[in-house]
Write a protein that binds this DNA or RNA. Structure first.
Lengths: 201, 201
DNA sequence: TTCATTATGACACAGCGTGTCATAAGGTGG
DNA sequence: CCACCTTATGACACGCTGTGTCATAATGAA
């Protein structure tokens, strides 16, 4: 079942082989967005430029926004992993803040080409509909942060607000970094974490 | 020019009178959403139930989400006004936090029926697409908060992150209040402001 | 070779949001 | 009272998104 599932595990034994490279399509879309404009570029245009059908395009990118946000997923995931790694060291409040800082910064390391990410984030910043999606795209990350705080003894309500504030601030940091020309996003992220007040610290 | 502009000032001298009551339509839509489900209720359904054309519906509510978020606008606006009112009293850092607290709470006063707002917010909480819109809907408020902080001497970058965090936290407070049964949202909002670290305080 | 499995695309569909244009319904000046 | 202007409304058509359905292509396995 679930016939529509592009390569769930790494191993595949039978069936027609995959001929579509999602990464290539995403970067092609990015190029088209830059040339023609985001809303003036239809999914049909992208599919045609990629030489595939519109339906096939939707199989790999469930929405137009996903063509942009999909590329940010490794960054988000790395940040989440760092957060869970920080759990291993049991922490007083100072470690708690350090954990948030580490998580915020961890995403930077997995970015192979910062200029591509900057392009993506600029596109996101310029289009409210894309920026809005941050709430959904960062939801897993927010949830992980909440869990992290809970385990470290932060009261439930506080953990909820703190994780929301944490993600909003760091997202804004990425936005500001993308808008400028500084090569390193880390100072922006660290400054963002500074606006949080962690209980007991 | 700008022929499509439903009643810009309060005074109108000529032309066909308005027969559509936006508030009635919004509450009708809310009812339909509750009965049928948000995504299963089409704009066509709402228009038909209201006895008007789909195009007329779009004249008053520019999107389906606007049927929900539009009703929150007075609350958001009141919060913004409170923020600017707090500007009149020049403030040290303590007043700054107090200003944020006051602004967060100010919206509560203008809500005539808390249960209706709770219904709206629950709908928002249950639908990621609606929750996402918080980023857009609260953007003016975020900008006002940023200005407020700037004028009070908060560094620009800090103001940016702080206002983002402030709005995310208070929005989450509204979500939590809506999810429960407590009559008063104020304690939630105050707790949300607590997770912010204001420079110099 | 035949079969099972999987990728792809052609097609159709509901729904959103936007234009354009005709018509209705009230005012105002003659 | 009538012609005229202004404005609200709705009928229609359009492009686009996202989804479902189904036929077809391309491979490995039996």
């Amino acid at each position: 079942m679930l016939p529509d599932d592009p390569e769930p595990p790494g191993m595949r034994s039978a069936g027609r082989p995959v001929t579509i490279d999602p990464d290539a399509i995403a970067s092609l879309a990015l190029r088209l967005f830059a040339e023609i404009g985001y809303e003036r570029t239809s999914m049909e245009d992208i599919a045609r430029a990629a030489g595939i059908g519109r339906k096939s395009l939707y199989r790999y990118f469930s929405s137009k926004a996903d063509l942009i946000w999909g590329g940010m997923e490794p960054v988000i995931a790395a940040s989440g992993t760092a957060l869970e790694g920080a759990l291993d060291q049991r922490g007083d409040s100072e470690d708690l803040v350090a954990g948030l800082r580490a998580a915020a910064v961890a995403g930077v390391a997995v970015i192979s080409d910062l200029s591509v990410s900057r392009g993506r984030l600029r596109l996101i910043a310029e289009h409210p509909e894309l920026a809005s999606r941050s709430y959904e795209s960062l939801a897993p990350q927010r949830e992980r942060a909440r869990q992290h705080l809970l385990v470290l003894g932060v009261p439930e309500e506080t953990a909820c607000y703190l994780s929301a504030a944490y993600l909003a601030a760091t997202f804004e940091a990425w936005m500001r970094w993308a808008a400028g020309t500084d090569p390193d996003p880390v100072p922006y992220l660290l400054a963002a974490v500074e606006v949080l007040r962690v209980p007991g610290a």
